[in-house]
Amino acid sequence: MSEYAISCSGLSKFYGKTQALDNLNFSVKQGEIFGFIGPDGAGKTTLFRILTTLLLADSGNARVAGFDVVKDYKSLRKVLGYMPGKFSLYQDLTVEENLAFFAGIFKADIKENYYLIKDIYDQIAPFAGRRAGKLSGGMKQKLALSCALIHKPVVLVLDEPTTGVDAVSRREFWDMLIRLKKEGITIIVATPYMDEAILCDRVALIQHGKILVTDTPSVITGTYPWKLFRVRSDNTLNLISQLKKHPEIHSADMFGEYVHAGTEHGKLSAEEIRAFLEEAGTVTTEVSEIAAGIEDCFIDLMRKENE
């Protein structure tokens, strides 16, 4: 097997006239956590379905775990673990029955592979007799992950596992993924949450079926092309409209209690921005230079793409 667990070239997919995927090229290394980060409708689910042999691409090819997703789909299905975006358990079966069923269809031995899911499953084991439909969101997710792992897959494909899940459960889920990575399982995960990017080894930012950039999160944020300031005042809306009036400031976006303003390097200082705003009658409580985050990068790349 090559050093890549997944490699794709020239993947495109159309639904009628709409292009869901536009010439995707990327590869995922063995044992990596690789994140696809982008909003709903970016093409993440389509891509994952192609990689899991559920859909055929219109052009291009893809290999997963050493198998061609079209020709070798039967062999590939034996080594894939897949958690679709929709809640994919049988709600009328109990926790235990769900696990036994999924182990059964992969002809996997629960005892043999239990070590893999132990940390996760132990948390839901006290409710083994409860029907899956009656579990809380966080527990459902743990059960779904246990079911996807029980046959010890080589590649784990997770389509938006954390969507609609609260911040605490999300954090727990990521802790589990990082433990799984240590077992040598390659994980690709789709998420609309930008803040989950830093938890991945590498990420692809994806929008309108196109990959905007692929790299480690630190390289992506490190190559953010603008100088970034965060500014705070009492009235965010007014602050944004004032900032946008400055000819050197080309972006002003809300980020929590702050507004992030981007300028070209070497054109403006924090002091100059504060003075400019004060002149316009806007009192600021903070203006300081900061490093960009993934979300800053995403917004910037999206704007470039839209132009």
Binding site: P39, A42, R170, D253, E295, F298
Partner: peptide, 30 residues
């Protein structure tokens, strides 16, 4: 939920405008 970062901000701008127009906004989010 699931909306891209630019649209998310445009959405919040709309929320601010509604609040300024006197509408009380009760919102849940993750």
């Amino acid at each position: 939920g699931g909306v891209d970062p630019i649209t998310r901000r445009q959405f919040w701008t709309m929320i601010y405008e509604a609040a300024e127009a006197g509408i009380t906004v009760f919102v849940t989010t993750h």
